[in-house]
Design a binder for these strands. Structure first.
Length: 415
RNA sequence: CGGGCCGUAGUAUAACGGUAGUACGCAGGCUUCGGGAGUCUGUAGUCCGGGUUCGAUUCCCGGUGCCCCGACCA
């Protein structure tokens, strides 16, 4: 799109008060807008990043065989009473209304999905089932913090699987584990995100978290150098040894919990009456697991991982645009024609490009904005590149510039 | 929820208890056009409530908001 038509502008100064890189940079660059602590709007650029992240998640979820649905955010008190969590979650759940007309905003969806599945599952032949949604969640965090990393309203991909037995559950659980690895790899966090053992509740010894190592992370994990698994501080033993391989070569790190997978057992199926008829003719409770990824938190974690003093640095898979085309110099005559042609050829090649066609904006400001917005490729058209009938191409992360002919450009930047 | 810091134009910052100023932005003019360019004119502000005082952005009390630490966190 043309930057002259982009809704947002950048700001020259960082927002005061904000300390976390993700909040400082995303606000300054005009990707997001804070409404209140822990609640943000996604402006056009931020919206596109979020969409890209959700698309990647969706593709990987679909590949596991799960079906996508969408459930309501507004829940009646009654479904939360069946599991006893109306009172249990009082501190984090937004609740309002009285008596028969009491409602809550959903912090998670076990209570809603279990009855849905109950209605459609009768027999062991109907299982296993996996359903997911990408949907808004509300949690009344007592202290929202670090920009997008801990919000009160946020988007979550929540997947729920339903099984007749533990073997079936384990097969799917491992499949999701791999899907999660795929997601974090695709968004650029493959090298810094660790499968982490965490406390697992009553059904299994451990649950698993995906933790992205970052100084601003609010979790503490111990990386095991011997088996490349991490352990959440909450389950590390006094002796500080890896529960997997007993190594004591552990490194303590801060990390952001970007994903969590959890075996629920029959914690929710029993109170809700989610049963199936087994081969022996008896009714048995369905075994469940849940799997979450916080979308905005993941976006924040990407920013925390990739930025520099000049601004954002987006991995290509999630960048709001692949290329940033800058026209430098007076926008008239052959220079403008050349830049317009370059813009159109990017569009024709299906390369998402942001075209900085703003007039009365100095070259320096365009470069500074390009650094701040952090698109992977910077393409510059000026009188000097025009003289050679080429475009100057540079990666956001590199200093080296190259002159590339227009018709070679699409291949060059998508390789 | 405990503790700490802080709330001044759209943004970022000044102002001993005494005319609320500067920069950027924004609107208009002229000059510029490869690293947030120059210049002229204009525009816009003290979180809310109470108190002290001749006078409060400034001091005191309460509220509220934000950020940070801790607690909490499927």
């Amino acid at each position: 799109m043309r930057q002259s038509e982009l809704f947002t502008k950048t700001q020259k100064a960082f927002p005061k008060d904000e300390v976390s890189a993700n909040a400082r940079l995303l606000i300054r660059a005009g990707y997001i807008e804070k409404l209140m602590a822990g609640v943000f709007s996604m402006l056009p650029l931020g919206f596109r990043v979020r969409e890209n992240i959700m698309r990647i998640i969706r593709e990987e979820m679909n590949a596991t065989g799960a079906c996508e649905i969408i459930m309501p955010a507004l829940h009646p008190k009654s479904v939360w009473e069946t599991t006893g969590r109306w009172d249990e979650m009082k501190s984090v759940m937004y609740q309002f209304g009285e008596g028969e007309r009491a409602y809550g905003l959903g912090p998670t969806h076990e209570e809603v999905i279990a009855p849905i599945v109950q209605k459609h599952v009768n027999s062991y032949l109907d299982l296993p089932i996996a359903l997911y949604q990408i949907q808004v969640k509300f949690r009344n965090e007592e202290r929202p913090k670090s920009g997008l990393l801990r919000g009160r309203e946020f988007t979550m991909k929540d997947l729920y699987s339903f099984h007749t037995n533990e073997e079936s559950l384990n097969v799917f659980y491992d499949r999701v584990k791999e899907a999660y690895r795929g997601i974090f790899k695709r968004v650029g966090l493959g090298d810094t995100t660790y499968l982490t053992l965490a406390s697992g509740g009553s059904f299994s010894q451990y649950s698993h978290e995906f933790q992205t190592v970052s100084d601003v992370g609010e979790d503490t994990i111990y990386l095991c150098k011997a088996c490349s698994v991490a352990v959440n501080h909450e389950i590390i033993t006094e002796q500080k040894v890896c529960p997997e391989c007993n190594s004591n070569d552990l490194v303590k790190k801060n990390a952001i919990e970007v994903g969590n997978i959890f075996k629920l057992g029959t914690r929710f199926s029993e109170p809700v009456g989610l049963m199936y008829r087994d081969t022996d003719g008896t009714q048995k409770p369905v075994i469940m697991a849940s799997y979450g990824i916080g979308v905005e938190r993941l976006m924040g974690a990407i920013v925390e991982t990739y930025h520099d003093d000049a601004g954002l640095i987006w991995p290509q898979a999630v960048a709001p645009f692949i290329a940033h085309l800058l026209i430098i110099g007076e926008q008239t005559g052959t220079l403008k024609k050349f830049a317009d042609t370059a813009y159109q050829s990017m569009i024709d090649a299906d390369i998402e490009v942001l075209y900085d066609d703003r007039t009365d904006v100095s070259a320096g400001e365009k470069f500074a904005d390009a650094d701040l917005l952090g698109l992977p490729w910077r393409l510059v058209v000026s009188n000097s590149t025009l003289a050679e009938d080429k475009i100057e191409v540079k990666k956001r992360t590199e200093k080296e510039k190259k002159l590339i002919a227009l018709k070679e450009l699409p291949k060059y930047i998508t390789k």
